[in-house]
């Protein structure tokens, strides 16, 4: 975190004798008043922390009527291979979507830093355009693209490559592709920032010292863009696994992921305690993945500064 660094370094910069000479302890010029964060803090406390606490309490009820309390809902989930399977496939779905977004998004971000101003604004427009339309609209577009009479199938049919339409909608690969596109801006924007920050002299130096383009990319550009990769992956991952609308419209009713599982229990079955337990478990699982990403991020800073 940049704030942390700055505060630590400013403490080193204040020489001891001066600090002792003044009567009141001087405020470091970069220190900011925590009180400024109070409105947001209060807002989060009321609208985020409190509901979360209620959710947690709810998850401790043994039955929807709340006659007794315990950890039985968690036991039900964690002791059930099917539920664990749903959790696993959701987390895996996120990995697939993130990987695809990365593979497709990195070249775009890389190209962005190496083209002229006019092309730059065009790329930014294309990247941002999906963000300006609602997820529902984007998802319906994918239904039109992937359907039996959709763009892909009719193109393949008219070229004579297939004789019957392929099943693309309501398949996991269709879902991964759709989610990757829907969440793409979340991957590309941090990448553009990270790659744009890399000093071009470094790649020139690498080339001057005899490295080929690929070697320069893998040894210099890719490691230095790691912070952007981590940030982009984190955002894409979190958005992909919780994308209830896209998951249910493109994935269909037979593919069960955590958001739909939660909805089913809470809404159709009115089993709020189990639904609450599912959300807490999902939250913890996602936090674990985020922590993992952050660890990678810390490692990447080591690489970047080495």
């Amino acid at each position: 975190m940049p704030g942390g660094h700055r505060r630590a370094s400013s403490a080193f910069l204040v020489p001891g004798p001066i600090a002792m000479a003044t009567t009141a302890t001087p405020k470091a010029p970069t220190a900011y008043d925590l009180k400024l964060a109070l409105p947001l803090g209060a807002f989060l406390a009321v609208f985020f922390v409190a509901p979360l606490a209620v959710l947690f309490l709810l998850s401790l009820q043994s039955d929807p009527k709340g006659t007794s309390y315990g950890l039985s809902q968690y036991g039900n989930f964690l002791g059930d291979a099917f539920s664990l399977g749903v959790l696993g496939s959701t987390l895996l779905l996120g990995v697939k979507v993130t990987a695809l977004s990365f593979l497709l998004g990195y070249p775009v971000a890389f190209a962005y830093t190496r083209v002229g101003a006019r092309l730059k604004s065009l790329i930014i427009l294309i990247v941002l355009l999906p963000l300006l339309t609602s997820v529902v609209v984007r998802t319906f577009a994918w239904i039109v693209i992937l359907g039996r009479q959709g763009i892909i199938n009719s193109a393949l049919l008219s070229m004579g490559l297939i004789s019957t339409p392929l099943k693309l909608l309501y398949t996991e690969s269709g879902l991964v592709v759709a989610l990757a596109q829907v969440q793409m801006p979340l991957m590309v924007l941090p990448l553009i920032t990270a790659i744009g920050r890399i000093d071009p002299n470094l790649t020139d130096a690498s080339a001057a010292l005899g490295s080929g383009a690929w070697r320069t990319f893998f040894k210099v550009t890719l490691p230095l863009s790691l912070p952007g990769i981590i940030a982009g992956s984190l955002l894409t991952y979190a958005a992909a696994i919780t994308a209830f609308i896209t998951q249910s419209l493109v994935g269909g009713g037979q593919m069960l992921f955590m958001p739909m599982y939660l909805y089913q229990q809470a809404s159709t079955l009115q089993n709020w305690p189990f639904a609450a337990a599912i959300s807490i478990i999902f939250l913890v699982a996602v936090l674990a993945v985020v922590t993992l990403f952050n660890l990678l991020g810390r490692l990447s800073r080591g690489v970047a500064s080495a």
Partner: peptide, 8 residues
């Protein structure tokens, strides 16, 4: 297809 809801 197994739709997630009748609207689908």
């Amino acid at each position: 297809a197994v739709a997630a809801n009748p609207g689908a």
